[in-house]
């Protein structure tokens, strides 16, 4: 049994220790907002926060999460930066198919929490690990800017 703190709730899960957090969230805890895109840390679709820091849950063994708080896209709106990001995302109509956007929102919220006033270069550095096949990048950049001014 592994104990996890996800979005403020405690879950006890009976899973292999090497199981990536992504699949624990999706297939065991039942939170499907976090997406599977590549499984090799190249796309960012699976990004969640551990104590507020962005990590790729597709390669994060669940046993290594420990007591750290897991936040997923379902709850990121409860943090000030997450809320600002989500609002900016809607205001600028960033989203297309939306599949990458959970990860984009999580990466962007973590950036904003750490750096309330990111430059274009900061945004590119923090967001370059998140692939969007639909090509929403220029709106992502604009939305983070807008959120930083909100």
């Amino acid at each position: 049994m592994i104990t996890l703190n996800v979005n403020g709730e405690t879950h006890r899960v009976d899973v292999p220790p090497d199981m990536p957090l992504l699949w624990v969230l999706r297939d065991v805890v039942g939170l499907n907002g976090t997406k599977f895109g590549c499984g090799i840390a190249q796309c960012g679709a699976c990004t969640v926060h551990l104590d507020g820091k962005p990590v790729r849950s597709c390669i994060l063994p669940v046993a290594s999460v420990g007591a750290r708080a897991v936040t997923t896209v379902e709850a990121v709106g409860q943090s000030p930066s997450g809320k600002k990001i989500q609002e900016a995302w809607l205001a600028l109509e960033v989203v297309q198919c939306g599949y990458c956007q959970s990860g984009q929102v999580m990466s962007a919220a973590a950036l904003l929490a750490r750096n309330p006033n990111p430059s274009d270069a900061d945004i590119d550095a923090a967001m370059a690990g998140n692939i969007c096949r639909c090509g929403t990048y220029s709106r992502i950049r604009a939305a983070i800017k807008q959120a930083s001014q909100a």
Binding site: L31, N32, E74, W89, L90, V95, G98, Q101, V105
Partner: peptide
């Protein structure tokens, strides 16, 4: 769009 930024959108892969 709102469902796609708060994780509630249900894509095929999310069906339970």
């Amino acid at each position: 769009t709102p469902s796609k930024v708060n994780g509630t959108a249900v894509f095929g892969i999310d069906v339970q």
